[in-house]
Structures are given as structure tokens and as C-alpha cells.
Amino acid sequence: MAENKHYFDLKDYTFKETPKSVRILFQVLKYAFLVVCCLVVIIPLIIVLFGSLKTHDEYIQSNVFALPAVPQFSNYVTAFNQGNVLRGLFNTMIILVISCFGTIITGTMTAFVVQRFNMMFTKVVKAIFLIVALLPSISMQVTVFQIVNKLGLYDNMAAPIIMYIGTDIIAIQIFIQFLDNISVSLDESAILDGCSYPRVYWSIILPMLRPAIATVLVIKFVGIYNDFYTAQLYMPSPKNAVVSTALYTFVGPYGAKWEIIFAGIIICIIPTLVIFLALQKSIYSNLVSGSVKE
């Protein structure tokens, strides 16, 4: 079985009779190519890490690749204390938790009703959700802004939370597609046992949707943690900063102090890195299953 993991091999691209030396050359090229690609990814990041550990003078004078003479952590302290990063992380976490919870509850409920009840009304709702998913979200903000303003949600953390919950049509689609593959006979047998519909949703559908929920959580995390314009547009005051906007404001007052900006960048990346390393495998599979369904 282990053999089956390797579906085909670059070395087979050459004809079977090719001499061994050519095959070795192919192997070398293969690794060299991957290493170069990885270096392209890593070098910009390493520069940031090195830079964040340098003093200001050292940063100006030394080569970007030079290691810091004595690693300085004062940039991190400055970024944390003055750069609003701590508040940004905290706000982002609150927004993440509430919106994820909200999306999963409303998303699964919507999907359950829309996919299971074959009524005129639910069909119309389903069609609307599918069409609406096409609207380009950034330029929609031109008019969403007026609504947020009228609701008195401007510069309030509730604005992004409600929007993340209310406009996540991809999540609903993922849940609907997943429900398509769960047999209705389970619902029916529960109903024969006297379960009500809300009960069927809670005890049968919701637990069955667990893999889809994981998918949505991964997509949601990447989307919200990295979202910039929603916070930039609706929460301009520093007390409502999220990670992205906190980092963005660095550019102003610290415009010339790149070593502090670098420290801010590293602080922002660390939570992502931890989550990525912990959940690597499931992130890959969830992203694949999430977007194939799009």
C-alpha cells in the first residue's frame, strides 16, 4: 500500500532505456528546483526575523543577511506595548470565537432546513444563497457601509462579527453539499422514534456535520485572521484594532523603524505558525474539500 502513495515519478518521464546518469540528473534537478522554491519562500521571512532582533543603528548599517550581533528583544517589547499588537490579538480572538460559533450555528441550521425540507420557500432561499455568493465582497462595501452606519454599528466590534456571520455563504454551501451525502433514512428513523425536527437537527445532523464544521473552521480562521479591509473600514479607532489593522498602523509612526515593524510581523505570524504546525494535515484536507465544493 505504501507504494501506492507515490503515484508517478519524474524519473519515469525519461524513457526506460535512459542511462542511469540522466536519471540521477533528473533527481538532482527535482530537489534543486524544490529547494530554490522553498528558499524564495523562506528568505523574505528570515530577513524579517533577523531584522526584528537588531538595534536601529545596526538595522541601518548592516547587510540584511547579517545576523544580529547581539539579539535584541526590545523591538518586540515596543511592538507589544506601543504598537497595539496585544490588543489586536485579543480583539481578533474575540471576533474569531464569536463569529465561528455564530457561523456554525446559523450555517448548519440554514443548511438543514434548506437541504432537508423540500418546500417552495426553502428552494427559493437556497437559490438566493447560491446567487448571492457571486457578489464581490470588497466592492459591496460601498453600500454595506451605509447600512452599518444606520444600524449604529460603525466603529463597533459587533459590525465585523455580524458581517462574518451574516455573509458567509460559502459555509452554508459547504454544509449543504455535505448534507447531500448524508442519508435521509437516519432522519426518518429518528422521526419514527418520535424525535422532533429541532431534535433531529441537534442530535443527528449536527454531530454528522462534524467534518464539514472542521472545514468551515479552517476556512473561517484563515479568512478572519487575515482579513484587513473589514476592520480597516468599519473599526478605525485604535481600541478596536485587530491584528491586521494594528500591524497596518505601524507603517505610520514607525515608518522608518523597520525593526519594530518586523517584530510586529513576527508576533502576528506566530499564532498562525503554531496552528499550522499543530493542524497541518487537517488544514490541507479541509481546504481541498472546502474549495472543491465551492
Binding site: 530577513i47 524579517v48 484563515v222 485572521y225 491584528v243 510581523i265 498562525t272
Partner: peptide, 11 residues
């Protein structure tokens, strides 16, 4: 792909 867009842009 997982990284914050602002961080990527600043980098």
C-alpha cells in the same frame, strides 16, 4: 497562504 495579508505586504 496562511499568513496575514498585511504581514505579507509589509514583508
Amino acid at each position: 497562504y496562511m499568513m496575514n495579508g498585511v504581514a505579507v505586504s509589509l514583508i
